[in-house]
Design a protein around this nucleic acid. Structure first.
Lengths: 336, 336
DNA sequence: CCCCGGCTCTACAACGATGTAACATCGAGC
DNA sequence: GCTCGATGTTACATCGTTGTAGAGCCGGGG
């Protein structure tokens, strides 16, 4: 059985409160008392019981991270950054997966399973704008993603429109005028796909290039395979293009494979740009030009905001909507 | 403030223990009492306080998963499976990253941070056989990986030697006799690289094919980039080969890119096989033949073993060494 | 009519930590 | 010599939950 304050106190011949004071670095303790207690602590290998501490203090030192699934590179890398940042605040991270399922996302918000976390970083993919009310809970939540805007909680997200516009502008600046899009979602007005497509359109308009619907291919999940399929369809349709904007990197990589299969050279025949800057993008040949949407900044900002909320201890504070900076990362798949 | 048993009891006009009994599904309660209590619970939105429950019961319902980093696809997918399996047991997972750093791995084992977990699934990369003693802790640990064998804890791992042998045999069966290896580690006797290389050698020997050291290229980290670099070195060295065994998929994919750059056809000129069956392997063109080392089985077995240990409640039980089954998954990068 | 047993329900004491208030002890100051 | 304040330490209550022991009530059997 693990030693308790009580055991240590008995061995050191002091009260448990004195041991507690030593453990917590309270200053008014005689050096010899402290030494005696410390010896007993080391001797017994005492470790504070975090459940008890948490019950007493109302804080567990654990934050929850709720995301679709770790198998998606973007979320794995996000989780990596969240965990690393949390560690610098002395917090540990409990990870829950929802499989992008709306019901499970909603369930997790009210689940007692989560009640031992002090707060949540919440990244939904299934919930939509109409579900914003579910975010109204009595613990701090930091919302990520593009599914809900203007909800009751803090929100950290990326400049989807501007970043997509910058990506498109990079292609335009290279003289490309026929820019295909891979990964659009049909009938979506919110969410990453719609916002990035909007950025694309803005860039075209600003450059005085007509928007050609034939260049936009739709798909569902943003997987490599869908990127490849979309590209095949585009090529077969006979529509001419000299550049491709993959709405995320996986799509761009899938498209890139097909282009190379068909003997098209990248970037001379077709330039390719992605979105997300997942790790493997830089290892491809040619390496993929992409947009770093600020994933690390999102993770770190989310943790920091949550830590601030926790420090408030439940007192009210205005909600914040934070947009992190993005970066266009030029690599070999675009000219120049 | 969140409602407690006490609040519910007051509202329902019963004792807190009765409420507790209702919450825990204790049977001997009059239906009308139960209904009254349930109403109060719903009314107040009562949720059990898990810290208190955990203090009282000595169990938190949280298990820890300690791994190098989630940015490595293998570990992200492992974590995905662990979390999913834990959920079926009603457990949640706290994920800690060590960065494959020996000191951090050792620290985590004795960290009070981890004391609120009931047990650990521990996947070290920095510790070695000589550190086995650190695994001797007073909570259940399930060890993963190939860094420590015969330690004091349960151990779940893959059949590295046999799986690597099977991979090599698939190439041999296709008539390939000059099989290059990408990703060996110098001076390693334990660990994935050494074990997989051993399987390779066994397969060659059984087939009566001489082992040619010139075909084995060494590297450090198992990244795409290192796979590509190794392949370039092999090609430049002028040593002839008709197949490549990447000791993991990332290496194989890196190598595959370089082969294609050089205009070599896969699999007709050079067959390629990997190891790990990461998700992207099947989306490549050509898709990568690889070995599923049983990652999902490892994750699920680890969780199940831990659950069994937890059920023992500290009672002794013999340690178990579990080897999961592997599968060779033939895809387009090998003939046939 | 009384006792026994089963069903409901309750009171109380834990689990291990910490905040509060208060109690010794000591030296300094008047 | 007595008070005062600072210092060092302690007793106690408390966080919210659950296990244990047992109390009250009812009906059935002797």
């Amino acid at each position: 059985m693990a030693a308790t304050l009580h055991d240590v106190a008995k061995q050191a011949g002091v009260s448990i409160k004195t041991v507690s004071n030593v453990v917590n670095g309270y200053t008014n303790i005689r050096p010899e008392t402290r030494a005696r207690v410390q010896e007993a602590i080391d001797d017994l290998g005492y470790q504070p019981n975090l459940s008890a501490r948490s019950l007493r203090s109302g804080k567990s030192g654990v934050i929850g991270l709720v995301l679709p699934e770790l198998s998606l590179s973007y979320f794995a890398e996000l989780a990596d950054a969240v965990i690393a940042r949390a560690a610098t605040h002395g917090l540990v991270v409990l990870v829950e997966q929802t499989g992008a399922d709306r019901e499970r996302e909603i369930a997790v918000l009210s689940s007692p399973r989560m009640r031992l976390t002090d707060g949540l970083i919440f990244s939904p993919l299934g919930m939509g704008q109409e579900d914003a009310g579910f975010l109204e809970v009595d613990y701090p939540v930091i919302l990520l993603g593009e599914r809900i805007f203007g909800g009751p909680t803090d929100h950290v997200t990326m400049r989807n429109v501007e970043a997509a516009r910058a990506a498109t502008e990079l292609l335009l600046a290279a003289g490309r005028r026929r820019i295909a899009v891979v990964g659009a979602h049909r009938d979506e007005t919110l969410g990453s796909a719609a916002l990035r497509l909007e950025g694309y359109r803005q860039a075209l308009e600003a450059a005085g290039v007509d928007y050609d619907p034939a260049l936009v291919s739709f798909t569902t999940l943003w997987h490599r395979a869908n990127g490849a399929a979309s590209m095949r369809a585009l090529l077969e349709s006979g529509v001419g293009f000299d550049a491709v904007f993959g709405l995320n990197d996986a799509l761009a990589l899938g498209a890139m494979r097909v282009l190379q299969e068909k003997g098209l050279r990248i970037p001379s025949d077709v330039a390719v740009i992605g979105f997300d800057d997942i790790d493997e993008a830089q290892y491809m040949v040619p390496s993929l030009t992409t947009v770093d949407p600020g994933r690390t900044a999102i993770a770190e900002t989310a943790v920091d905001l949550l830590v601030e909320r926790l420090a408030l201890g439940g007192r009210e504070a205005p909600r914040r909507e934070i947009l992190v900076d993005f970066d266009v990362i030029a690599r070999e798949s675009t000219p120049g």
